[in-house]
């Protein structure tokens, strides 16, 4: 059980999700009622200049809400009061979505968080400077000049070679929860 006495400024809570697929976005569109085809139809998304389908903004937002629900044992230990989010970057199929919240202050039973959601988008794997595996972002050209100029493109060693990926903040904001004890 989460209690006020156990809370520490600077404490981080986090979740990760790596199962964003076209199938899941179709299910989300159907269930949520957000049936804008830019989220489900690559051809229409391309016509809109998006190079392929993008996740619904509120779909990704849902993982922020989930983070607090899970922290509060599905709101048995407290209640989510407010979540305020700026949507900054597009989320795509295949992205790893990492949602983190850090406790910035407390006031009685109210806990204040700063939130950051980051996407990790694989582009390709190279060996001896040759591409041996290309991911959707590489195939469809999701990486922009702006991404490169801003230093979002990174590399790391993996089993097969050197992985190029983009690390970009997709959402930022803050939240308030209230604990029962």
């Amino acid at each position: 059980m989460v209690k006020t006495a156990d809370i520490q400024i600077g404490q981080v809570i986090k979740n990760e999700f790596d199962q964003i697929s076209r199938e899941l976005l179709k299910t989300y569109a159907k269930v949520s009622g957000d049936t804008n085809p830019i989220h489900t139809n690559d051809i229409i998304a391309e016509k809109a200049g998006l190079k392929g389908v993008i996740a619904h903004g509120l779909f990704s937002f849902g993982f922020i809400t989930k983070l607090f629900e899970d922290f509060l044992d599905q709101e048995r230990d407290g209640k989510i009061i407010r979540i305020n989010i700026d949507m900054r970057g597009i989320v795509r199929c295949g992205d790893l979505l990492v949602t983190e919240a850090i406790i910035s202050k407390t006031e009685g039973k109210r806990i204040f968080f700063d939130i950051k959601q980051t996407t990790y988008t694989n582009v390709d794997i190279k060996k001896n400077n040759k591409i041996i595996k290309q991911f959707e972002a590489g195939e469809r050209g999701y990486i922009s000049e702006k991404d490169i100029a801003r230093g979002f493109l990174k590399q790391k060693e993996v089993d097969d070679g050197i992985l190029t990926y983009r690390e970009r903040v997709s959402m930022e904001g803050n939240a308030i929860i209230e604990l029962y004890e």
Binding site: I38, A48, G57, L58, F61, T65, K79, I80, I81, R82, I83, N84, I85, D86, M87, G173
Partner: peptide, 14 residues
């Protein structure tokens, strides 16, 4: 309508 983006959101459950 294709020119509209969702730029931010606040849920207040107080």
């Amino acid at each position: 309508t294709n020119k509209m983006l969702h730029a931010g959101n606040i849920y207040d459950w107080e």
